[in-house]
Write a protein that binds this DNA or RNA. Structure first.
Lengths: 112, 112
DNA sequence: TTTATACTTCGACATATTTCGAATTATAGT
DNA sequence: ACTATAATTCGAAATATGTCGAAGTATAAA
């Protein structure tokens, strides 16, 4: 009934699962406040988005961060793209739009 | 900066945690498709919102359902109110509005 | 080709979550 | 007071998640 591409309820659970952890939510915050997917952050800006920069803001082991990024990526919330030695992360704005739609229309899972 | 009462990041994690389970998400779906908090569902409608009615739609033990409802309630996503032998559940639309705002403004945790 | 940097994978362990059935509490009707 | 119905709490077991450090892979630079 909706004109929007819907997220099925299984994927929605995965998305909420991905956001249901303080470290991952913080990562997501950093990415939403900084990087839009087209424009990869220049290195002279205050915040940038490669894994190492996230690492410096998070106080967890690099391996743990890697695990969390994998979860966010699996859920479809972020993009990850290698550029040389670095891997750059950015928010998947398509999914953001769909989430907005889900909550604004009060149809958290009307497709069920 | 926002004119909206903000949800802090700890509460936001709890909200996502509450929605990060297929049974709880289904419960939340049922409640959003049916009951608005002012209008408690009349018993002659197709869907109603007492715990027993949710139970009949869910294929889990009553004790498990009770646990899930407690989680949704703890997160602030639903109201629960006893009326005689039944306990009626409804969505907390205030929180829904705040979630909508969070996603629509792309500020998942800008208050951090 | 050796070394350094950036990041990921693996294995192990601790903690948290999900689930059930049995027992318990709350309310209403007999 | 007793019984029935609706829902919750408790304790135990199975599964999932979060975390780390060590080892591994990918890329670039010397």
């Amino acid at each position: 009934m909706s004109k929007y591409k819907t997220i099925d309820s299984e994927q929605l659970v995965d998305i909420f699962k991905a956001l249901a952890n303080s470290h991952r939510l913080k990562i997501f915050n950093i990415l939403t406040s900084c990087c839009t997917p087209g424009a990869s952050c220049a290195s002279d800006e205050v915040f940038s988005c490669c894994v190492g920069d996230l690492d410096s803001q998070l106080d967890i082991a690099a391996s743990t961060l890697s695990h969390h990024l994998k979860e966010l990526h699996r859920a479809g919330l972020i993009h990850m793209q290698r550029d040389g030695k670095q891997v750059y992360c950015s928010v998947n704005t398509d999914v953001m739009k769909q989430l907005e739609n889900i909550f604004s229309s009060q149809l958290v899972g009307a497709q069920l």
